[in-house]
Design a protein around this nucleic acid. Sequence first.
DNA 1: CCGATGAAACACTGG
DNA 2: GTTTCATCGG
Length: 737
Amino acid sequence: MDSLEHLNPQQRAAVTASAGPVLVLAGPGSGKTRVLTFRIGYLLSQLGVAPHHILAVTFTNKAAREMQSRVEKLLGHSLQGMWLGTFHAICARILRREQQYLPLDANFVIFDEDDQQALIKRALRDLNLDEKLYRPTSVHAAISNAKNNLILPEDYPTATYRDEVVARVYKRYQELLVSSNAVDFDDLLLYAWKLLNEFSTVREQYARRFEHILVDEFQDTNLAQYELVKLLASYHRNLFVVGDEDQSIYRWRGADYRNVLRFEEDFPDRQKILLEQNYRSTQRVLDAAQAVINRNRNRTPKRLKSTPEHGEGEKLVLYEAVDDYGEAAFVVDTIQQLVAGGKARPGDFAIMYRTNAQSRLLEEAFLRAGVPYRLVGAMRFYGRREVKDMIAYLRLVQNPADEASLGRVINVPPRGIGDKSQLALQMEAQRTGRSAGLILMELGREGKDSPHWQALGRNASLLADFGSLLGEWHRLKDEISLPSLFQRILNDLAYREYIDDNTEEGQSRWENVQELLRIAYEYEEKGLTAFLENLALVSDQDTLPENVEAPTLLTLHAAKGLEFPIVFITGLDDGLIPHNRSLDDPEAMAEERRLFYVGLTRAKKRVYLVRAAQRSTYGSFQDSIPSRFLKDIPADLIQQDGRGRRMGRSWQSESRRSWDDNYAGTWGSRPERAKPSHAPILQPRFKPGMRVKHPSWGEGLVVDSRIQDEDETVDIFFDSVGFKRVIASIANLEILS
DNA sequence: CCGATGAAACACTGG
DNA sequence: GTTTCATCGG
């Protein structure tokens, strides 16, 4: 490990820190991954720790793979026995090993978002609740939030009637999961924590084993993950966590950057190391990013410094397009020009956006220009119906109790089992206390001899046909290889004939199925359980094709941990960045700002800030105003790209006026915001007592209104969602009385 | 029970 | 612009 010479003093202090709790606060590009890999290498080679005594937690599987290969390269041998993976993957591993302590059997499956949603709906139906009144998404969010905060159904606080309802749904949902022999993502963490919390022998076993625990992206852990790590580290207390409060962007998923503060309270003897030296970006990029993030309160102030060889760097380029088509065209044009001029390679570029929906226009522009691109996002492939259906078949074979998968495929392709038959089957399952899948398999095996045959009447025969198929696959699953099983199912279903109707679309559907089959071949050795588990736990970043030289399209969230020479941040309009749904919540606004900061700090050399004066939502055009975060970047760090202004159109004069009069020269100095279409508001339009109507929240009562930043901020109590704070120019309020 | 058709709702981020 | 749901005739 003489390579320690190549680390800076802070990095070296972190890598060689003595035993005990260590907190590393690492700014973007400060060599965080390097510190983690060297730390593992140091533990293994200098302190003689055996790989099997180390646990390292990363944010994505991709990060885990990268870290593994980096350490192996550093040491020159393999890391057999070390535990390395995401929280969810590690918990799944623990749960499978300790399955006897759980209300599940070893074949349990992991439910994805759709399955969870379906199960919530089922629970609502079972409890006779109105889906209109109790939106499945919102109920599910409340339950997920509870789980992330280690709140069990019986402990769910019921301050209001609504809470009481949620508590009942939570309870029922959990029963349904257990009877499906399934867990959701949150259960992976919750069960693992419960297991270690309740069974001291199990806790001892793991806590003694893991002499050293390392956690990456610590700012994005939630309470369940934090408490779990504390239990795992309870014996040796060698807990090495690395994070950056400024890059915490998963609050909505339960992540709490205050875990950094908790860590300092819970481990007062912790060593604390600050990494501020940036090895990634030019100073201009860093100055812009810091100007943005410095507006957030409650953070550890940092002073990011670039290295001399990066130099000052170029100014950030700002481009305002007419509309979102122009925005996409600008991105593709710029890339083509830079590549054609030999200034950059296609793989140097990343195009970032706030919402996935924004990728469509960008993709179209790339396609039209004939420029290949790569898109980050699992949805693309795994979200396809035919892929989900095949996965559901495999899950059902693995775990016949899986109600969600059964419901999905019981009549796909159509085999005459409609709503009526399915309901009858469900009733029979409830009556006999067995799972629908087991009943089906018994019908298939025993036919008329089964006691269920009579009970199901004229539905029995078709159900039995399907049951015998299912039973046959289930029998084969431990005899033949995963790919053979997969092909057997395809054959038995005549699935190709079903989905491939010889249209272009049909062919692409079949290609998707074959791609899944190809992936199944990769799991020939590891088997069905591992295959399904990996499918459930792939992250967006994991789907990024490697070694492909093309621009990368991705959300700002997916950009975390990555870096690119040239970064486009698109959709820099109020309502997108910051997002509409965050405007009324200061904590959410702070997170939007961090998200922008994360995007900016991905760039090594150059940043393009792109917005559109108009964009299409739901099909119709709407005017938009520049992101309020733009004005926090000092003017001397920004240059405008003039191309947009020469495209003579009616918007031109207006855009120019808005820019020159309200914007240019005001960077960071005056707190003004551009107003393309109307003069600054001086008098409130809304007064307390008024009835108003909001496009999504419906009617409400104005409680208060005031002028802020030349716009009107209105506090409203809505009939449907309660108290909200809105910006009048954005909210599109209608005065009713 | 099935497939087609059109209306209606609809999308923030993701393991 | 896309997906999901409700309805209808076969």
